[in-house]
């Protein structure tokens, strides 16, 4: 995928046993050079414009839309209750209703939020230097494995990992040690798609994030 901006997204691996169960599950990722020290007023304005479009009734009806529905159904398939562990779009919408706005935090988190709001597809970021050469993918944990930050994970959990580390539980928080920090110059962005989410939405979500982060 190349669209003006100089980046190309790579499909991540999916463990065959996981793929057999969830044929629509996929991960797309890329690395991009960034300068995280700067906050963009333009990005804040875009978030404000999105915030103006959210109403309570729309948030309630959100779950009937195709992409949120696909993520909600997938959450149930993998043992998550979407009314407890909300899907990312609903989580963002609920926070917007509670706070009255999409609070701008830093350039990276604003860009990830923008990607989510514009496409409905969640995007996560890792410190680019922490990703092993084989790239990212989705697999199940084996016995006695742990997150990169040290948190133990029982066997059979779905995680985002590379050849060396488990970076995050699937749809969970990225391990603290692998999150981008102020000195990060290269981030790895990844989006996770499920059955019912068109691939173009994943590409679009990554593209929106890269475009929002601007030239590194």
């Amino acid at each position: 995928m190349k669209r003006g901006l100089d980046f190309e997204a790579t499909p991540g691996f999916v463990e065959p046993a996981v793929r057999a169960e969830f044929p629509g599950l996929r991960l797309l990722w890329l690395t991009v050079a960034v300068n995280l020290g700067t906050r963009s007023p333009a990005l804040e304005r875009r978030l404000d414009a999105h915030a103006d479009r959210y109403r309570g009734a729309g948030v309630v009806a959100m779950r009937t839309l195709p992409i949120p529905h696909a993520y909600r159904a997938f959450f149930r398939h993998v043992g998550l209750d979407p009314d407890v562990t909300r899907i990312p779009t609903e989580q963002a919408a609920v926070e917007r209703l509670l706070q009255g706005a999409f609070a701008s935090r830093d350039a990276l988190r604003d860009a990830l939020l923008l990607g989510l709001l514009e496409t409905g597809v969640p995007v996560w970021a890792l410190d680019g230097d922490r990703v092993a050469p084989g790239g990212l993918g989705i697999r199940m944990t084996a016995e006695a494995e742990a997150l990169a930050s040290g948190g133990a994970l029982p066997a059979g959990r779905l995680v985002v990992a590379d050849a060396a580390h488990i970076h995050a539980p699937l749809f969970g928080e990225v391990a603290a040690a692998h999150r981008p920090g102020p000195r990060t110059r290269r981030v790895a962005l990844f989006a996770v798609g499920v059955d019912g989410v068109p691939s173009i939405h994943l590409e679009e979500a990554l593209w929106v994030c890269v475009e929002a982060l601007g030239p590194g």
Partner: peptide, 30 residues
């Protein structure tokens, strides 16, 4: 279930709010 919730919201019917007490968990193969 989503459609039922939206219908109840549109008709101001109370008592259909999602109330789950399931604990937060990690995604896994069921």
């Amino acid at each position: 279930l989503a459609e039922a919730l939206v219908t109840s919201f549109a008709q101001s019917i109370e008592g259909l709010e999602p109330t789950s007490c399931a604990p937060r968990a990690h995604a896994r193969m069921l």
